[in-house]
Amino acid sequence: ELNQDQQALLSYILDAYNKHRIPPDMAKKLLQEQFSTEENFLLLTEMATSHVQVLVEFTKNIPGFQSLDHEDQIALLKGSAVEAMFLRSAQAFTRKMPHGHTEVLEERIRKSGISEEFIVPMFNFYKSIGELQMMQEEHALLTAITILSPDRPYIRDQQAVELLQEAMLEVLRKVCKLKHPQEPQHFARLLGRLTELRTLHHHHAEMLESWRMS
């Protein structure tokens, strides 16, 4: 069972995760803007920017984050923004999005000049996240855990970050036991997605380069 502190941590993180979302007018644009490679490119760039802002607002609410060294806060966010973005957009490809949005978003991504070699691993990741049937609590905790990775470049006080991440991992482990009692491997599979995210992150830099070129 979660102890009192863990329960408080979980509801606090979940509340922040639900509160800080891509603004509704952005979602409307997703549906309204007409379909061309340029439009899709601009829209995805705008969504990525808005997503970084949403991510920072969420991260400010992670208990202990704002007491970390200021430059370490920047390094953590810079190092994890891409992964957190893929994780959050993965939710769009599970049952979370209203009917129709997912198909439109998928079409826009496929027709935005991003080369096929990046599209395939991206949608494989979305599919593997979907298969895990994750609860909102798991998404919120996994996002916080991704951000609090002590091994990001330029982190000076890795131990302080590690302590925060460990507290989150412990809560996630218990949540997995409670929410997926018949799947003992569930927690391990969630952590496995984090490694998959790292590969996507690695591809992302190359993807941006080739996207700019085309």
Binding site: T49, V56, Q73, L77, A81
Partner: peptide, 21 residues
């Protein structure tokens, strides 16, 4: 607009900003 700022600029700006209620 924010979209032509670099990733770090967007992060610094958002971190500085007050949490809007």
């Amino acid at each position: 607009p924010a979209s032509n700022l670099g990733l770090e600029d967007i992060i610094r700006k958002a971190l500085m900003g007050t949490v809007e209620e």
